[in-house]
Nucleic acid binder design. Structure first.
Lengths: 215, 215
DNA sequence: GGGAAAATCAAACAAACGTTTGAATTAATT
DNA sequence: AATTAATTCAAACGTTTGTTTGATTTTCCC
């Protein structure tokens, strides 16, 4: 037996993942969940409350698993770029077992709804900061500002893989997320470790347009 | 004097970028554009038509500039990963001069509306294929399927940078897109060039399916 | 088993939605 | 200047939206 709240969360998650938040009506959610229309407001207060509940249900356990994996690495003194990226991506690997989990995780970040921003900061803020510090320990020669950007790039690539599980023009793939993220990690490791090019090394807000075109 | 159609396109672009397609009403667009509500249907037929017009106005010139830059590289026989990625990102560099252009470009890809999919295939399909071939020439030792994934990752990182111009927790930055994309290219080059790890090389687990097929 | 709390339900609410209409106005053509 | 085409306009269309209400049913505790 699944509770009314879980039926609503499952139905809303699927529809939000497919059509987006704004394009999904509470009526279509209630119909898919096979519950009364008023149930959403009874259990979650509003459509926004339902959205927040979806985010918390899915994101929180993932981020706690991430932090636990990071704690384990710290205990072993095993801060390498590879192990840290593994700790970051591992908790997502079995997400495909829940049908709409990868999609909704990926879409959450790109959802323009205003409630999303504080929600994201609350859910991802501290976690991202801790991973950044770990990477900074693993790569002490790379300025932290540079690492922030590289982590930004990694997250973008990861989210893209979640929302579009197959590259454009690659037909369908049976590859699991385990294999996909293995590819992503192998792609990202040398990028994280690469030395900062001289043109980016100047400190502060460099506004000079070096005009140094193709070398 | 700006034509009614351009006023609508500008207003809709800004609002779609901020709130997303579904959450933006034609009334708010008309109000911002300072035109009559019925103007959208007169000039673009429907809300979807307006969306398609926005995509075409912005994406087409960018992708044509990309292809022109790629043609130039081909003429010089200068197919390196760096030059190819430059050709891919360069046309976006001055996009910041138009206020909502980076955001709308970034959001287009993540917009779940159904009309977007065929629109994206039409606008990006051939362009992406040609860049992939070029990368394949520059890196003949890396299997093309692997390069597709790496290009996928690059695109994800690029789009993330467009929609979220600043990494989480980095305050604000005055860095131009020229500098941001320089960072991205330096991040991506070694990832593209990295050898395929043995764990991904095993045959049998990976299936190559028809790449040009449509359902 | 009775009474209170929790949950479900059908129905209605006002507001907002994309779209259509037909007349009024402006621009272009002859 | 007259006529035609293109554009703008206010108003209304029928639906759909998130939310609320108040009665009804179910569940739980004493």
């Amino acid at each position: 037996m699944t509770s009314t709240q879980d039926c609503l969360l499952n139905a809303a998650e699927a529809l939000f993942a497919e059509k987006g938040y704004a394009a999904t009506s509470l009526r279509s959610i209630a119909a898919r969940a096979d519950v009364n229309l008023a149930a959403t407001h009874y259990h979650f207060g509003s459509k926004e409350g339902l959205l927040a509940a979806i985010v918390e249900r899915r994101v929180e356990p993932i981020n706690q698993a991430r932090l636990a994996a990071l704690d384990a690495l710290e205990a072993e003194g095993n801060f390498t770029v590879e192990s840290i990226l593994q700790a970051f991506l591992q908790p997502l690997i079995h997400s495909e077992e829940i049908e709409y989990l990868p999609t909704i995780i990926g879409r959450i970040d790109s959802e323009p709804h205003v409630v999303m921003k504080p929600l994201l900061e609350k859910q991802f803020g501290e976690m991202a900061r801790r991973f950044l510090n770990a990477i900074s320990v693993a790569l002490p020669d790379i300025p932290q500002q540079e690492l922030k950007w590289r982590f930004h790039f990694l997250v973008g690539a990861m989210l893209k893989t979640l929302t579009h599980p197959t590259p454009l023009g690659l037909g369908t793939t049976e590859d699991s997320y385990e294999i996909k993220f293995q590819r992503l990690i192998q792609f990202a490791i040398p990028g994280f470790s690469a030395p900062v090019p001289a043109t980016l090394k100047t400190k502060g807000a460099l506004k000079t347009k070096g005009s140094g075109e193709t070398k």
